[in-house]
Design a protein around this nucleic acid. Structure first.
Length: 548
RNA sequence: GCGCCAGUAGCUCAAUGGAUAGAGCGUCGGACUUCGGAUCCGAUGGUUGCGGGUUCAAGUCCUGCCUGGCGCGCCA
């Protein structure tokens, strides 16, 4: 059951409008600035042109009808013609009741049949995750959880680029590390190879397993072995990073499998049959420019190998065939050049425009002791995700990555994330939860017998009402996340709820043995807050501690 | 040169085309002989990068600049 007060108000307004005019029009109901009331609507402002009346005149007419409705304590007109409402306590209490009863649900039945897929964290398995990947993983993970919460059927998927030339370079780099450790001095990793320390470690493991068997020996079979060994070991590290960050995937999708199962060839054939490919300079090209304002791109190189572009088209073709209604790809902003090409490819294959949705996120800058450290994978100056998560903890890492709009450049302040004080928003929200748990411990210790859900009508204080209104907006917050594809809306909401609760708590004594009825009511409000806080934190993948 | 993203308080960030642009931190000043002071209350702080335009209304939309990030490969 959903008791979104704004919906109740919207319906009340619509009922009035229906009697006045035939053509419905869009208007909004939102929280009002506190000096004006609880909720506000711009219905008279946007409606004035349909009625050929001034906004204020129309507002007065609508208000005249609405004020008899018992859900309102008052209806007033302010400013250019805003309708401002104070809602009755009874309406506010419905929210608390339904949360306490467990029938407050944000999921929508109509979402249940919508199959969506999130693809994120996709990386070459050629090195460990970086801090930049961390941002992407958390954005994807939280968005997936929010979509799931709203009832969508969601698959979380990581694409493993295990087929390209990068992998061959990786295998070769590993083989050279292996030989170096066995005393072969003259071999050096090529400039564009992989120089990271992690390959030295993996080479050591290879020696433990196979001894000197592959020293100075190199053929296709050995190459495959070294490639596979490197990929498997790096993937194992990535999986442990994911676990540490509390990220789970439903599917790990191998690029190689698209080649071996014929998907790539099938897509090539389809594009060829449609006349959308051509040969030039010994390579096969896709007519990207026929669909979008971008240059044509190579699908098959002159040496016969497949480009990343081609296999990615095949991957998305595969997604489409799997029956997803929408897919969301989350990429770093350095991939934005890939967007229009993929859009073109989808059009070329006749896949609907709304199928592929791409969420680009900007880069992360680390800040430590006031110094900013810019990171770039290509320049080799990256900080492994593992180190960051170990330093600040998974809760702070996740919260920080989630709390910034993906479109905004992000400064990750390591010192702030480690700080256990009010400066740190993750502790601020968690503290509200711990504080509520403490209330119930206290009540028990003091031998107070209380009954959740009883005497709710005693909740009359403005600070109590503010908490109730905020509880009602949880649904709004989650829908905002879906609408804007930014998890930070949920963080902002939880900070607001924590703030409202702390204010209430400071001003209103919750546990008071001399007023058991009022204690019943306030403990009930605290319980409802606890339920929403812990739900919100769990969607963020963050713990809701009972003590801190 | 072309394209994408951003530019809002000292700092980090909010704000469906709506009311006097808001929070937190910082700074200054207050609040526990009752439930966790990891909290609360108040003050301070703005020409929303700059100039035009669209309209009842622009931080938001259009346009021209400026600054920063990222791209512009038979890399991924």
């Amino acid at each position: 059951m959903q008791f979104l007060i704004k919906n109740i108000i919207r319906e009340a307004i619509s009922d009035v409008l229906e009697k006045m005019i035939d053509t419905p029009f869009e208007f909004e109901v939102k929280n009002a600035p506190p000096q004006f009331g609880d909720f506000a609507s711009n219905v008279a402002l946007v409606g004035s042109r349909f009625f050929k009346k001034s906004p204020r005149q129309l507002a007065e007419q609508i208000a005249g009808e609405l004020c008899v409705n018992p859900i309102f304590d008052s209806v007033s007109i302010d400013g250019p013609g805003f309708l401002n409402f104070k809602v009755s306590n009874d309406v506010l209490l419905r929210v608390v009741r339904s949360i306490l009863n467990g029938d407050y649900k944000v999921s929508r039945d109509e979402n249940r049949s919508v199959k969506v897929q999130f693809e994120y964290g996709s990386a070459n398995p050629t090195g460990p995750f970086t801090v930049g990947h961390g941002r992407q993983l958390v954005i994807g993970d939280v968005l997936s959880r929010v979509f799931k919460e709203l009832g969508f059927s969601v698959i979380r998927e990581m694409y493993i680029n295990d087929a390209g030339r990068q992998i061959k370079l990786l295998g070769r780099s590993l083989w050279i590390r292996y030989n170096q450790q066995l005393g072969v001095e003259e071999l050096q990793i090529p400039q564009d190879g992989y120089h990271g320390e992690y390959l030295v470690e993996i080479a050591g493991r290879l020696i433990d397993l196979h001894g000197e068997r592959y020293k100075n020996k190199w053929d296709d079979k050995i190459e495959r072995l070294f490639c596979n060994f490197a990929v498997e070991n790096i993937m194992a590290g990535m999986r442990s990073d994911l676990e540490q960050l509390n990220c789970q995937f439903d599917v790990y999708f191998s690029e190689k499998s698209l080649i071996s199962d014929g998907t790539v060839d099938g897509v090539l054939k389809e594009l060829f049959n449609k006349g959308l490919t051509y040969e030039k300079d010994g390579a096969i090209w896709l007519r990207v420019s026929s669909f979008v304002d971008d240059a044509d791109k190579v699908l098959i190189r002159s040496d016969g190998s497949y480009t990343y572009f081609l296999t990615d088209i095949a991957y998305h073709y595969n997604k489409y065939k799997r029956g997803f209604h929408r897919v969301y790809d989350i990429w770093g902003s350095d991939h934005h050049g890939h967007v229009s090409r993929m859009v073109a490819a989808m059009k070329a294959l006749g896949i609907p425009d709304d199928f592929l949705n791409i969420i680009l996120h900007q880069f992360v800058t680390l800040k430590r002791e006031g110094e900013t450290v810019k990171m770039s994978t290509r320049a080799g100056s990256f900080v492994p995700l593992k180190n960051l998560v170990q330093e600040v903890g998974p809760d702070a890492a996740r919260y920080f990555f989630a709390m910034i709009d993906p479109n905004t450049h992000m400064v990750f302040d390591i010192d702030l994330a480690k700080k256990q004080s009010a400066d740190n928003p993750v502790y601020y929200v968690q503290y509200a939860h711990a504080r509520i748990c403490s209330l119930f411990r206290q009540a028990k210790e003091k031998g107070l017998t209380f009954e959740i859900g009883k005497n709710l009508d005693l909740l009359q204080n403005p600070l109590e009402k503010r908490v109730m209104k905020r509880l009602d907006s949880f649904d709004d917050a989650l829908n905002d996340v879906v609408r804007t594809l930014s998890p930070n809306k949920l963080c902002l909401y939880l900070e607001g709820l924590a703030y409202d609760f702390h204010s209430f708590y400071t001003k209103c004594l919750v546990i008071n043995p001399s007023e058991p009825e009022l204690s019943n009511a306030r403990l009930s409000l605290a319980r409802a807050t606890e339920i929403v806080l812990s739900k919100g934190l769990s969607i963020l993948g963050i713990s809701a501690p009972e003590r801190m």
